[in-house]
Each structure stands twice: as structure tokens, then as C-alpha cells.
Design a protein around this nucleic acid. Structure first.
Lengths: 162, 162
DNA sequence: TACATTTGCGTAACTAGTTACGTAATTTAT
DNA sequence: ATAAATTACGTAACTAGTTACGCAAATGTA
């Protein structure tokens, strides 16, 4: 049991901050893990690797849609992956606005080691979810609700009812 | 049901990213909400307000411990709150390293309106957790596990077992 | 009392996301 | 065929967190 934790003490009020704290914790712990293993990638490169492995070539917009993140976020990630030579780009021949992204040979060669790391990450998630079988389903429920009507809209409506 | 969501498709692999996506979504939606209501504060000021309302005076270190965040994070938040004149500081008389933080009159006057906003936020969380009564308990379980042994340590051990 | 250690907090540099804006290429509409 | 609207993506400026480092004040120790 965590002692003296204000966020737990204040219950529902602290829930969003606890979620943020947890995800931040995992984020920086993952960085730490990569560093310890001597792998020179950032946590948020993981899904880009997976997407490009599966689809060979994707544009910035396609990736941002599939990950449901803003396109500038993807642009930033891609820039760093390019700097480390994990990603290459070429302009689409039929639409010169589009940048086709693909994994470089360096990336392909690194994949086996990376995939082992990611497997270890999955094992950790399984550990953390042990006795928590509904967590994923519960999360999906929340995602669905928020997808249908945003947190902001809901809160505005709730405020007007007070 | 969310369509074509790569993060859901890949199951456990996408879980941490989904949690991050959810907390980011709530974060920016909360900003949006404050803006819509015409309240000039940031989401992460909320807990500082609550702590200082409860304890009158706290130091940077005390706040960072209670929220379990790094002290530079608190320093940054406080700086912005000071710029908007919601927080005042005075140097501790017995230990001149310590900065005592307190809510200004402007903050005290703003509190009633803010508290109404936060009440609306709680109602929203209740909505989102409807049919999800175990979510909080489940979250606490994960926090406990990660508190005992970090995500990094767990993953390193899992990697060695592969 | 002098010196080493610890504590408090501030800054710098970094990743990580957002919204807002701009521009060029493509598509649509008139 | 030309003008308008849309799309793709890049940049800027912002909040939000971290780790690493530095310095001065306080504390512990010889």
C-alpha cells in the first residue's frame, strides 16, 4: 500500500492525475530499460516500427490516423528516427505532397533485438495485469465513452446541471 | 467500438500507449473545458490548489513528495501560477533555503468557481466509470506492483528469462 | 571549529504531446 | 480552364513531464 499518497486520498478527484502519473512512470521506466539494455531508441518509436514492419510504406497522415495522434507528433518522432537512420523517406510519385516512410536496413537488422525487448515488455504488462483480467475491457469501455462524447462536452454539461 | 485502431488491434502491446493516449486526451480536453468556461488555469494546477487550500503553506519539496512528482516539475508549475498571481511565496524564517508557498487572495476568491468546475469533472469521471466499479481498485493494484518493483526491473528480468 | 555531507530548489536540456498557422500540391466545382 | 476548397505535412509556440547539474544553506562529524 502506498503511504501518504494525496492522489489516492482524494479518490475520484485524483484519478486522472494517477493515470497520468502511471503512464509517465512507465514511459520513463521504459527509457531506462532501453538504456540499460543498450538499445538506442525511444519508447514512442515502438509502434512506428510495428506499423512500418507490417505495411512496408506509410505516410505521415496514415500513421497519425492509425495511432490516433496529431500529425505534428508523428512528424517529430519521424525526424528523430531519421536522424538515427532507422527510417527513410521518399516522395510519392503520383502525389508529391506525400512522404512515404519505410524502415531502413539498419532498422531491419535491429528488429530481432528490439522484438525481444518488446516481448519482455509484454511479459511485464501481463505481470501487472495479473488478477486484473478486466482492465483492458474496462479501458476499452472508457475509450468508447470518451470517443462518443468528449470529456470536455460531458464536463460542460455536468457543470450546467450543478 | 473504435474502428481500425491499431493500438487495440495489437492488444497488450498497445496498452501503455492507450493509457497515454487516454490521459493526453483527458488533459487537453480539460484545457478545452477551462477555456470554454473562461477559467484561466491549467489542469495541473488543480492539485496544487487543493493541497495549499488544505495545508495553507507548503514548500516545493513537500508538494513534490505528496504528489509524487519531481521537484523541477513543481517548480515549473509554481512559476506559472505565480505569474498569474495565484500563488505567493515567502522564505522560511528558520531555514532560508525553503520557499513557503501559499494561495493569494486572488486564488481564494477564485476558489468557489474553480471548485464548481472540479465538481463537474468528478461527475464526468463517475460517468466514465459507470459499469466499471473496479477500475480504481485495479489501478491501485497496478500502482502497488510498480511501486514494489519498477517496470524497468521487471522488464529486465523478463528479458533475461527469454 | 573546520570540513564533509545532505537538503532545498533553481536551471538546462531533453522527450512528448497538443493547437494554430502556413504553404504547396491536388482535387473539386463552376 | 480557372478559381476555390481540401489535403499533406512542416514549423512555431505552448504545456508537461523527466534526468542531470549546480549552488547555497543547514546539518553532521572529526
Amino acid at each position: 500500500m502506498i503511504q501518504n499518497d494525496f492522489l489516492i486520498e482524494i479518490q475520484l478527484v485524483g484519478l486522472t492525475s494517477r493515470l497520468k502519473r502511471l503512464t509517465d512512470n512507465i514511459l520513463y521506466s521504459t527509457k531506462d530499460f532501453y538504456k540499460a539494455v543498450g538499445v538506442d531508441i525511444e519508447p514512442n518509436w515502438h509502434l512506428i516500427f510495428l506499423l512500418l514492419k507490417k505495411h512496408r510504406e506509410l505516410t505521415v497522415t496514415e500513421i497519425s490516423e492509425r495511432l490516433q495522434m496529431s500529425h505534428p507528433a508523428i512528424v517529430k518522432i519521424i525526424r528523430n528516427m531519421k536522424l538515427k537512420d532507422y527510417i527513410g523517406t521518399k516522395t510519392d510519385t503520383t502525389d508529391s505532397r506525400k512522404q512515404l516512410l519505410y524502415l531502413t536496413t539498419k532498422a531491419e537488422l535491429a528488429l530481432p533485438q528490439l522484438e525481444k525487448c518488446w516481448e519482455a515488455c509484454i511479459l511485464t504488462m501481463e505481470e501487472l495485469l495479473e488478477g486484473n483480467e478486466f482492465f483492458l475491457k474496462n479501458l476499452e469501455l472508457i475509450e468508447e465513452k470518451i470517443g462518443k462524447k468528449s470529456y470536455k462536452e460531458r464536463t460542460l454539461k455536468n457543470l450546467n446541471r450543478l
